[in-house]
Nucleic acid binder design. Structure first.
Length: 424
RNA sequence: GUGGAGAUGGCCCAGCCAGGUAAGGCGUCAGACUGCUAAUCUGAUGUCGUUUACGACUCGAGGGUUCGAAUCCCCCUCUCCACGCCA
């Protein structure tokens, strides 16, 4: 891919504000590598044939001479192999740091100010009282505890309690049930993943500083369920009948969020949050349609919750490393008068499939091909909760529970503030 | 964690002791034949490269010995069994 169309990659790197030197470095290493591969193939051919001859030769000068010759050939092969190993290292280092190519219909742009709103839904609510922001609401409702979470884990972590914890659980169940109706199979994968997995989906190496690493065991805390779920299929060759394969998972996600200063108030940006994720493995020809479906699946959830939102098509400069095209769903939070990113739906084409070696066979006996992978959040919990609380708040300080969630909360219709201050 | 046994093509399994072209079976596909969706026979059925004909690679991963390694040596990973620990 890089080899066959280097100019396209160069163009892409420029659009993503990346240095193109990495490409030239790759091409140089790759060229030499291929040259050595050819050379070694020839040498091995010689060695294979001559070794066979040697086995049939009688003992004597002639045989000793051949053996000596082959010893030299062997040394040469080994020398080439050593050089190739070094080249391979350079090559992989380059490849792993070259991002995916944005799709043709992705708008050019340098940062998030140039994303394009492609869809809007719902009315921004008009209040006849001054709406609170979520942090204030949660404290007043006694459904969150920041200080005690800090005691246990440190800043950037929080503890839900009472109806807050129940609302969280209700949302998770609601999302998973909706995804089941949408045809996804629920999985509950490990929360801890290895380096091969984070490499397979493209978080490693470029996002490694934003992930928690367990040094002693060389494992990572799940940064997004996309990682364990997609990598479940690592190194597999699927059949055509397996596709499209649609999986969903609820899983905690962990982000170190180093160097990010905004949003220290409340639960907008935290180190650990719950998320329900959708992952699709599809035939390449269907992946663009699958992206629209995936986005629709996520939107269906927000509509059911009655939350005003809009959909952004991310521009080239704001896209993540691995994706070819990405929609963000942002929920409107009236208490703080801002949009909150609560879902990202991306098509990775074969970018992840190549790294994780996920293939399928279009027909029995045909050559296997890489699948296309996609994923989308449906949804990230904290920001969904923020939107619910701020949109559904009432003048008396209570919050109405969206109807679709009530069955998950024993029919409860409202979360009301405690009459007096309570310890817990 | 300790001891033992293992890992071979889509699946099963031989070869390893004693180094010299990875055997056989199942499944799948194609063809042949037969009066039908069966049987039988023949062929195909790992990856990569390129000049489409060949070549290279491939026996859990990586090293080593050797003219030559599935086979010998080192090291690592994973699986199974037993014991230990444990929600």
């Amino acid at each position: 891919m890089i080899r066959s169309n280097p100019e396209k990659i160069r163009e892409m790197l420029i659009h993503r504000n990346k240095d193109t030197a990495i490409l030239d470095k790759f091409l140089e290493a790759d060229g030499r590598w291929r040259q050595l591969t050819q050379e070694n193939n020839q040498l091995r051919k010689t060695r294979n044939t001559v070794s066979q001859e040697i086995s049939k030769m009688p003992k004597g000068e002639e045989k000793d001479k051949k053996i000596a010759e082959m010893r030299e050939v062997g040394d040469k092969i080994k020398a080439n192999d050593d050089e190739m190993a070094k080249l391979e290292e350079i090559r992989m280092d380059c490849v792993l740091n070259i991002p995916n190519i944005p799709a043709d219909d992705v708008p050019l742009g340098k940062d998030d100010t140039e994303n394009v709103v492609v869809y809007e839904w719902g009315e921004k609510r008009k209040f006849d009282f001054t709406p609170k922001d979520h942090a204030q609401l949660m404290l007043d409702l006694n459904i969150v505890d920041f200080e005690r979470a800090v005691k246990v884990a440190g800043s950037g972590f929080y503890c839900l309690k009472g109806d807050g914890a129940r609302l969280e659980r209700a949302l998770i169940s609601f999302f998973l049930d909706m995804h089941k109706k949408q045809g996804y199979t629920e999985v509950f994968p490990p929360v801890v993943v290895n380096t091969a997995a984070v490499t397979g989906t493209g978080q490693y190496p470029n996002l490694k500083d934003d992930m928690y690493w367990l040094e002693r065991d060389d494992l990572w805390l799940n940064p997004t369920a996309e990682v364990p779920v997609t990598n479940l299929l690592q190194d597999e060759i699927l059949t055509k009948e397996d596709l499209p394969l649609k999986l969903t998972a609820y899983l905690p996600s962990f982000r170190r969020e180093v160097g990010k200063h905004a949003d220290t108030n409340g639960i907008i940006r935290v180190h650990e949050f719950n998320k329900v994720e959708m992952v699709r493995f599809v035939e390449p020809s269907t992946s663009w349609q699958a992206l629209e479906e995936l986005r629709g699946d996520a939107e269906e959830l927000v509509k059911a919750l009655g939350l005003p939102y809009h959909v952004l098509l991310l521009c080239t400069g704001d896209q993540s490393f691995s994706c070819a095209k990405c929609y963000d769903i942002e929920l409107f939070a009236p208490g703080s008068n801002r949009w909150l990113e609560a879902s990202s739906c991306s098509n990775f084409l074969d970018f992840q499939a190549r790294r994780a070696r996920i293939k399928y066979r279009p027909e029995p006996h045909l050559k296997s091909e890489f699948v296309h992978t996609l994923n989308g959040s449906g949804m990230a919990l904290p920001r969904t909760m923020v939107a619910i609380l701020e949109n559904y708040q009432n003048a008396d300080g209570s919050v109405t529970i969206p109807e679709v969630l009530r069955p998950y909360m024993g029919g409860q219709e409202k979360i009301v503030p405690p009459e007096k201050k309570k310890t817990f």
